[in-house]
């Protein structure tokens, strides 16, 4: 009852105070006003720090955090960083690349099954995909550490089957790090793939079958191209965080599996060589942006950006 009254009085007030539509200029100002706080926050705490990171990468390395750094436009920090950490850069992109490809092969059947085969279990399966990822990232990665441990059942059974040699191990190897990366970023592949598979009009696949395409050809010519936006989005969402990650290599690998994230972390927080760390960080960012742009152009999915 009161709702109706309130609505009526509001309506009356509305007609009284706004006889004409709001002027365009005021609406425009409202837009800026609504946007300002968020933009200011991102400008101050994202854009400015990025510029500061670039500046830091050009500081003179002979300075220190305690006594301050001198800005000498030391471009030489970059070649120094590349030569010192070439292996870690290469390893990061290799691990992230392998993990992304593995994630595609694991996520595609799962997303396909949820979109087309799950029937009334669709909702439940989606929940099952997301649910594990609410448990702490670190706790799950540590669980992998124990699962793959030398005396664990996985290593034990692999040895019994003979896949792993008697003195073989999984933990502290590249295999463990890549498996961890694949696992941690898998839902970022499944969800966008599912989203674009689900939108596909199945009559298109039927049409292909009617025109004598076999199941595989129909998939290759119809389903796969139509799921491309999801595939591209999933690839980016997996590859970008994976190449910067250092938790997996830290908890599942050894220094021999160190990625560029480990290097940046150590240089900033342990060695306290800020210019070197910043040069690595900027290089990582530039490399990723370049690869992403190239990839998006090649796959013809510009509208994603």
């Amino acid at each position: 009852m009161s709702a109706v009254v309130g609505g009526l009085t509001d309506a009356a007030r509305g007609t009284a105070t706004t006889p004409t539509p709001t002027p365009i200029s005021r609406r425009k100002l409202t837009g800026y006003f609504l946007l300002l706080p968020a933009l200011a926050w991102l400008a101050i705490f994202f854009a400015v720090p990025s510029v500061q990171l670039m500046a830091t990468s050009l500081y003179d390395r002979s300075g220190s955090l305690e006594y301050g750094y001198e800005m000498t436009f030391a471009v030489g920090n970059y070649p120094a960083a590349w030569t010192a950490y070439a292996t870690q850069f290469g390893r990061s992109f290799m691990y992230a690349g392998i993990a992304t490809v593995l994630a595609i092969f694991l996520a595609y059947p799962l997303a396909y099954a949820i979109a087309f085969r799950a029937g009334r279990f669709k909702h439940l399966m989606l929940v099952l995909v997301i649910a594990p990822f609410f448990t702490s990232f670190l706790v799950r990665t540590l669980a992998w550490n124990s699962i793959l441990a030398d005396n664990g059942f996985v290593v034990g059974s692999l040895k019994t089957i003979g896949i792993l040699p008697e003195d073989g191990r999984l933990l502290a190897s590249s295999v463990a790090v890549v498996a961890g990366l694949t696992y941690n970023f898998l839902p970022f592949m499944v969800l966008p793939l599912y989203a674009s598979l689900e939108k596909i009009d199945l009559r298109l696949v039927e049409a292909a079958r009617d025109l004598y395409a076999n199941g595989f050809t129909a998939f290759r010519k119809v389903t796969l191209p139509l799921s491309l936006p999801g595939l591209v989005a999933g690839t980016l969402l997996t590859f970008i965080p994976a190449s910067g990650d250092y938790i997996n290599s830290q908890l599942l690998g050894t220094p021999k599996q160190a990625m560029i994230g480990n290097v940046i972390d150590r240089n900033f927080l342990v060695i306290l060589d800020y210019p070197m760390a910043a040069a690595c960080s900027v290089t990582l960012m530039v490399a990723i942006v370049t690869m992403v742009l190239f990839y998006v152009r090649r796959s013809g999915a510009e509208e994603l950006l």
Binding site: F46, P49, S50, I240, D245, Y274, S281
Partner: peptide
């Protein structure tokens, strides 16, 4: 959303340190 977390974390630290 497209920036690796190491880069964001380290650039904020660079700002605070400066």
């Amino acid at each position: 959303m497209a920036t690796p977390e190491v880069v964001m974390g380290s650039s904020l630290l660079a700002l605070f340190a400066a």
